[in-house]
Design a protein around this nucleic acid. Structure first.
Lengths: 168, 168
DNA sequence: TAATAATTGTTATTGACCATATCAAATATT
DNA sequence: AATATTTGATATGGTCAATAACAATTATTA
């Protein structure tokens, strides 16, 4: 089982092999393959990757999509409220909105009640893009998860992630 | 220096939780609460937060912990091999090792076979810290997941994350 | 009402993280 | 021997996350 250090170093010189990416022997993952954070991070990166692929025609990141969703569902809210709900810090939300506004997906409107705040509204184009994005996400992205896990497991996974996000 | 990690966790107390605070009504999350990427990212952040808390006495990030684990389990491997396995780019792995080496947790040794490469080895202190870290992770971090989900669900979650990380 | 505090959006800045190009030394290939 | 590839390293740019600070506005309170 255990390999001596000299044998291991010897082995390191031996190989070049055809395979995926790494041309060496696979390393022992050890307890890494049971480490929640490691698996979660790896999975999350894959999910974001796939999201970007699926919604690439619309040039929307996951964060941008979530902003459009939330603004659409919550008319009359200001920047701070939207940003807080998404866990985005207010300073960092500014450039994000600048981007969406420059692409005519979203608009800042001065509130009549409180002239400090900007009420956020989707433009017609913003609503149209959001609708197309939702369709792409549902038919390509989330559908992929269904194929991989099955509907029951998918539901279970989302429930567990929700619980972790809320109570961990 | 390098208190940025603790500073970040300290700052989490300042951060307002999404949808909390009795003054404002909670926003409608809409299909956000069913969006895989959103939930995954939120959950992942919580998990990393908790990991940092649990292993704070040892001042190890999840990434550093994974490096120690992998080096320990794979004696005789060089930087490229370890970095590749963890999905870390070689240039970015350099400063990471500089850090671990400066803390006397890890050592670079010139290979006798190939004088270009650095064989990575844990120091005695590195092995000791790793052992303590493993214990903290098991008894505080992963145990927390068990309490939250139960053993069966925890196993199911890890399996699904593994599948997503591998096949998505 | 006047003075003070708090809030909103914003700018500036910093540090962490990810990615690419490039380099010298060493090794592999031709 | 000449050329190509690999390894660790440096430099650099981009994206995020986080903090401090500021002007305009609103809320508080003395």
């Amino acid at each position: 089982m255990s390999v001596s250090k000299t044998a291991a170093t010897e082995a390191s010189k031996t190989r070049k092999e055809a395979g995926e990416g790494g041309s060496e022997h696979a390393l022992q993952m050890g307890e890494l393959s049971e480490l929640l954070g490691y698996l979660m991070k790896r999975a999350q990166l894959k999910v974001f990757e796939d999201f970007l692929r699926c919604v690439a025609p619309l040039q929307l990141t996951p964060a941008q999509f979530s902003v459009l969703l939330l603004v659409d569902r919550n008319p009359g809210r200001n920047q701070t409220e939207i940003a807080n709900t998404l866990g985005i810090l207010r300073p960092n939300f500014v450039s994000m909105l600048d981007n969406l506004e420059s692409r005519d997906l979203c608009m800042r409107m001065r509130s009549t009640n409180d002239r400090r705040s900007h009420i956020l509204v989707l433009t017609d184009k913003g609503r149209a893009v959001l609708a197309r994005a939702k369709k792409l996400v549902a038919t390509k992205h989330e559908a992929r998860l269904n194929e991989l896990l099955g509907p029951a497991n998918r539901t279970a996974l989302l429930a567990m992630l929700t619980k972790i996000a809320a109570e961990f």
